[in-house]
Lab assay of single mutants.
Amino acid sequence: ARYHDEKKIIKDILKDKGFVVEVNTTFEDFVAIISSTKRSTTLDAGNIKLAFNSL
């Protein structure tokens, strides 16, 4: 259940930042955007990776 909650937070962060994940978006770029907000401090690193892979 935590993964789904965190995935929603991640999607909200991406929307707030106006960031669109494209086919050529690197995981490093994705993490940089997510990490640039205070909301990301509680996110699990594994869940961030899973969310990236699912987009």
Rank of each mutant, 00 (worst) to 15 (best):
A51L: 09
E28P: 01
E22D: 15
K11Y: 13
V23H: 15
I33T: 12
S35I: 03
S35W: 01
D16A: 08
S54A: 11
R39Y: 10
E28T: 05
K8A: 09
T42H: 05
E28F: 05
D44A: 07
K7P: 00
R2Y: 06
F27T: 05
K49Q: 07
F19Y: 08
S54M: 10
A51D: 02
S35E: 13
I13P: 01
L43R: 04
Y3W: 01
L14K: 04
D44C: 06
D16S: 11
D16P: 03
T37G: 08
T41P: 08
D12N: 12
G46I: 08
K17R: 09
E28N: 06
E28L: 01
R2F: 05
L50C: 11
F30S: 01
T26S: 12
V20I: 05
T42C: 12
K7I: 15
T37H: 14
N53D: 14
A1Q: 09
Y3A: 00
D16T: 10
V23W: 13
A1Y: 10
I13R: 02
K11P: 00
S54I: 13
K11T: 10
S54P: 00
F30R: 02
K38Q: 09
S35L: 09
T42F: 10
I33C: 09
I48L: 13
S35K: 14
T41L: 13
I34L: 15
S54D: 15
A51Y: 13
N47I: 06
L55W: 13
L14F: 01
T37M: 08
F19Q: 05
V23L: 13
S36G: 08
G46N: 10
I34C: 07
S40C: 05
I10L: 04
K8C: 07
F30E: 05
K11M: 15
N24R: 04
G46A: 13
D5E: 14
S36W: 00
I33Y: 00
T41R: 14
A51I: 14
D5V: 13
H4N: 15
S36R: 03
G18E: 09
A32V: 02
L14M: 11
T26F: 02
K17A: 08
T42V: 06
K7D: 04
D44G: 06
E22W: 00
S54H: 09
I9W: 00
E28R: 06
I48P: 04
E22R: 10
K8E: 11
K15E: 11
D44L: 10
K15W: 06
T41A: 11
T26V: 05
A45Y: 12
V31R: 11
Y3M: 06
K11R: 08
D29T: 05
F30A: 08
G46K: 15
T37P: 09
S36H: 04
A45K: 14
L55S: 04
D12F: 07
D44E: 06
S54R: 08
S40H: 14
K15D: 13
N47H: 08
D12A: 11
Y3V: 04
G46W: 08
T26R: 11
V21A: 05
R39T: 09
A45T: 11
S36Q: 13
E22I: 04
D29W: 06
K17T: 05
K17S: 07
N47D: 01
D29Q: 11
I33R: 00
K7Y: 15
K38N: 12
S54Q: 11
V21L: 06
D16I: 05
L14I: 11
K8D: 07
Y3R: 02
R2P: 01
K7G: 03
K7N: 08
G18F: 00
I33G: 02
D12C: 04
I48E: 12
D29E: 13
I34T: 00
L14A: 03
D16E: 12
E28I: 00
D5T: 14
G18D: 11
R2D: 09
I9A: 05
T41G: 11
L55M: 04
A1C: 03
D29I: 06
V23G: 15
K11Q: 12
V31H: 12
R2E: 02
K15N: 10
S40Y: 08
D29K: 04
I33Q: 11
N47C: 11
K11W: 08
F27Y: 15
D29N: 06
N47G: 05
E22S: 14
A1N: 15
H4I: 14
S54N: 10
I10A: 00
K8I: 06
S35G: 12
A45V: 09
I10F: 07
T42P: 07
V31N: 03
N24H: 07
K8T: 09
E28G: 02
K15G: 04
L43G: 01
R39H: 12
I10S: 01
F30V: 01
K38W: 07
K17E: 10
D5M: 14
I34D: 03
E28H: 12
L14T: 02
V23S: 15
F27L: 06
L50T: 14
S40K: 09
F19T: 02
T37F: 04
K49V: 05
F27K: 03
N24F: 07
N24W: 03
K7S: 12
I13Q: 00
R39S: 10
D16V: 02
A1M: 13
G46L: 09
A32L: 04
K8G: 09
K7Q: 07
D12L: 02
L50N: 03
V31A: 12
N47K: 03
S35Q: 13
I34K: 03
S40I: 13
L55R: 00
K15T: 08
R39G: 08
K11V: 13
K49S: 05
S36I: 04
I33A: 10
D29S: 12
S36L: 01
K17M: 06
S40N: 05
A45H: 11
I34H: 05
H4F: 15
V21W: 09
Y3F: 12
E22C: 09
F27V: 02
N24D: 14
V23N: 15
I48F: 05
L43D: 04
K11H: 08
A45E: 13
E28Y: 04
T41E: 10
I13F: 03
K49W: 14
H4P: 07
I10H: 01
T37K: 05
H4Y: 14
F19W: 07
F27E: 01
R39P: 02
Y3K: 02
G18M: 00
S40D: 10
D16K: 10
K17C: 06
T42G: 13
V31T: 12
T42W: 06
T26Y: 04
A45F: 14
L50R: 15
T42Y: 14
K49P: 04
L55F: 12
T37S: 14
T25A: 03
G18L: 00
I9C: 07
H4V: 13
F27C: 01
E22Q: 10
I9S: 05
K15R: 11
T25C: 05
F30P: 01
T25S: 04
G46Q: 14
L55P: 05
I48H: 00
V21E: 07
S40Q: 03
A1W: 07
A32K: 12
A1K: 15
N47V: 07
F30Y: 12
S40L: 09
A51H: 11
R39L: 11
A1T: 14
L50Q: 11
A32H: 07
T26A: 10
T26K: 15
F27M: 11
T41F: 07
S54F: 04
A51G: 01
H4C: 10
L14C: 08
L43K: 01
N24I: 01
V31M: 14
R39V: 13
F19G: 01
E28K: 09
K17I: 06
K38E: 10
D44P: 00
T26M: 04
V23Q: 15
K7H: 10
N24K: 09
F19K: 01
L50V: 09
K8H: 08
K38G: 11
K38R: 11
A32S: 13
K38T: 10
I10V: 02
K8N: 09
L43W: 01
L14Q: 01
K7F: 15
R39K: 14
S36C: 10
E22F: 03
S54C: 05
F30W: 04
I33H: 08
G18K: 06
F30M: 01
D16H: 07
L50S: 12
L43C: 06
L14Y: 02
R2S: 09
G18H: 07
L43S: 01
T42Q: 14
I13T: 01
F19C: 05
I10T: 00
G46Y: 11
I48Y: 11
I33V: 15
V23A: 15
F19P: 04
T41V: 11
I33P: 02
S54Y: 07
V31K: 14
R39N: 09
D12K: 06
S40T: 04
N24Q: 07
E22H: 11
V31G: 03
I34P: 06
F19M: 05
A32C: 05
F30N: 08
S35F: 11
A51R: 00
K8W: 03
A45C: 07
T25W: 00
E28M: 05
R39M: 12
D16W: 02
T41C: 09
A51C: 12
F27N: 02
A45L: 10
V31E: 09
I10N: 07
Y3Q: 01
V23R: 15
N24L: 00
I9L: 12
K38A: 10
A45D: 13
I48D: 09
E22V: 02
D44M: 02
L14N: 05
G46R: 13
K11S: 10
N47Y: 07
K11E: 13
D5P: 02
I48W: 02
T42I: 06
L43T: 03
K11D: 15
Y3N: 03
I13N: 00
S40A: 12
T26I: 03
V23M: 14
N47F: 09
A32G: 12
E22P: 00
I33F: 09
V21R: 03
I13G: 00
R2W: 02
Y3D: 03
T25M: 03
I34M: 08
L43I: 06
V23D: 15
S54W: 05
K8Y: 12
N47A: 00
F27A: 04
I13A: 01
K7V: 13
N24P: 03
F27R: 02
Y3S: 02
I33S: 04
H4T: 12
K11I: 14
I10D: 00
N24G: 13
N24S: 10
S35R: 14
S36M: 06
T42R: 09
S35H: 10
T42K: 13
L14V: 03
I48A: 03
T37Q: 09
H4W: 12
D29H: 05
D12G: 08
L14S: 04
